[in-house]
Design a protein around this nucleic acid. Structure first.
Length: 489
RNA sequence: GGGGCUGUAGUGUAGUCGGUUAACACGCGGGCCUUUCAAGCCCGAGAUCGCGGGUUCGAAUCCCGUCAGCCCCA
């Protein structure tokens, strides 16, 4: 008696392309179902298309799965290693009479097809080699005639209860005796998949909607092979903003590109899970474990979804805010090194400070790239003044200089940047005494120290930078403004 | 050309064994907060539930038809 613990699912990408978001979502659903049920996830690389499969693609797929945290339990099995199993299955099919050799030539088939079109009928193989006598078969083989092996499709209809779509039916007449082994001896896709899934003991086939038309053929094969037919769950496709299949035109297609753009693995998983599935309540921002716990196949919708980057960004921002500084420091540190902001050793030396900095900037960032940009001014080095910031706060050079004078005085008088409340009190008092707006002083300090018009609270910013950097930058800003005002005279 | 899948606001979803003003989120507009921007909180605009008909006291929910989009095969 099978229990839920016997669940065996698989993810079977074809390495003719990168791991794209649709594939990742399929992998995710399989992984979620395996984890939810305590079952097993098998990874199979469908690399039989030798022409188009590359090692680079396989590496990208494994890389992407690893980033998403979708670890598999068995495999990877390479389909190309399973040729003999495929051939044996075909032999068994021929042996049992469920398949037969077909000697029709390409020209024969083409003529059949054209005739069908002329009669305005849909084309299915006529079955003219169906009932060749053993003698005829032997004779043609002896003559060296090339042949394919076709599956003998019975009459009636093939149906299954799809976990997502419910009862789905195909009239067998519309299928026609299909080829299972090509004349060059290579197995056809549907045969290979069925044999591989059978041998792997797959109980639930969770895959894209686009495989629905393959399903009746595969069910027929399972039956002819005397194997148990698994449950099928066909998940809807992910579309681009124009409702067509997601492609490069719609932005990044490879999952690893999203990693590079600064999305968090947990956020991306969360987003993908919500494309075609929901927990049934109002929860949206969910942690991995929460999703695993809530995930069931019957809550997958049958409607294809459009990939909405805005929502992905929002969700990523949510996960960024939820993450603690140390976690972010860990995932972001390489970016700082690569950007030349700090060396790995420097970060290591100030690790605690770095973690606190991440906490300081995380609510303002939606991606790790933004996080890095926000954090950049907190490191030693020159600051470039953004034109919009200068335009808004330093338009009048004279006023800006007077305000910065107060800022400089504040920094000199403040004994230490350790008490944010006291700092604010002192700055406000000083501003009042000098008759300038406290807000202007703060904003000018912001531009001087970060070069931006946006940053965390100014006192937190100064505290995190340290008095040395703040003093230096205010001095530099004053010099810059002086040069500017001279130049404009 | 044939077969199949889908159709609730711009987008992602909830609601579908029929029952008061169709819910939540993103995005959008506004407000509060504030030293900026986010975050957070509050308010709002936005859906005749693809369309038509039927059943019913009552349908997004049931039945029939129709249209559209997409997928696969050829």
């Amino acid at each position: 008696m099978a229990t839920e613990n016997d669940v065996r699912v698989r993810f079977a990408p074809s390495p003719t392309g990168f791991l794209h978001v649709g594939g990742a979502r399929t992998a995710l659903f399989n992984w979620l179902w395996a984890r939810h049920t305590g079952g097993t996830l098998v990874l199979r690389i469908e690399d039989t298309d030798v022409e188009r499969s590359t090692g680079e693609m396989i590496a990208d797929i494994l890389d992407g799965l690893e980033w998403l945290g979708l670890e598999w339990d068995e495999g990877p099995i390479h389909q190309s290693d399973r040729r003999s199993a495929h051939r044996e299955a075909v032999e068994a099919l021929v042996e049992s009479g469920d398949a037969y050799p077909c000697f029709c030539t390409v020209e024969d088939l083409e003529a059949e097809r054209k005739a069908a079109i002329a009669r305005k009928e849909s084309y299915v193989y006529s079955g003219r080699c169906r009932d060749l006598s053993p003698g005829e078969v032997a004779e043609r083989k002896a003559a060296g005639a090339p042949h394919t092996i076709r599956f003998r499709v019975p009459g009636g209809e093939t149906t299954w209860e799809d976990v997502v779509h419910g009862r789905t039916a195909f009239e067998n007449d519309t299928i026609g005796d299909f080829i299972v082994l090509r004349s060059d001896g290579t197995p056809v896709y549907n045969l290979a998949v069925t044999v591989d899934d059978r041998d792997a003991g797959i109980t639930h086939v969770i895959r894209g909607d686009d495989h629905i038309p393959n399903t009746p053929k595969q069910i027929l094969l399972y039956r002819a092979l005397g194997a148990d037919v698994p449950r099928f769950a066909h998940v809807p496709l992910i579309l681009g903003s124009d409702k067509s299949k997601l492609s490069k035109r719609h932005g990044a297609v490879s999952v690893t590109e999203y990693r590079e753009e600064g999305y968090l693995s947990d956020a991306f998983v969360n987003f993908l899970a919500l494309l075609g599935w929901s927990p049934g309540d109002d929860r949206e921002v969910m942690e991995r474990e929460e999703i695993v716990e809530a995930f069931t196949l019957d809550r997958i919708t049958g409607k294809s979804a459009i990939f909405d980057v805005d929502k992905l960004e929002w969700l990523n921002g949510q996960h960024l805010s939820l993450a603690d500084g140390e976690e972010l420091a860990e995932v972001a540190k390489d970016r700082f090194v690569e950007a030349g902001i700090a060396t790995a050793d420097e970060l290591e030396d100030r690790w605690e400070w770095f973690c606190e900095l991440m906490d300081l900037v995380k609510t303002r960032a939606r991606t790790l790239e933004e996080l890095v940009a926000q954090a950049r001014p907190f490191f030693p080095g020159p600051v470039a003044y953004a034109s919009d910031a200068v335009e808004r706060f330093w338009k009048d050079r004279g006023t800006a200089l007077r305000v910065l004078e107060v800022a400089a005085a504040f920094v000199e008088e403040e004994p230490d940047f350790d008490d944010l409340e006291r700092m604010e009190e002192n700055l406000r008092a000083l501003a009042e005494e000098r008759e300038v707006s406290a807000g202007k002083v703060m904003q000018s300090i912001r531009v001087a120290t970060t070069g931006q018009r946006v940053s965390p609270g100014i006192f937190e910013t100064m505290a995190a930078m340290g008095q040395g950097i703040v003093r230096e930058r205010i001095t530099e800003a004053r010099e810059w403004l002086e040069r500017e005002s001279e130049a404009s005279v």
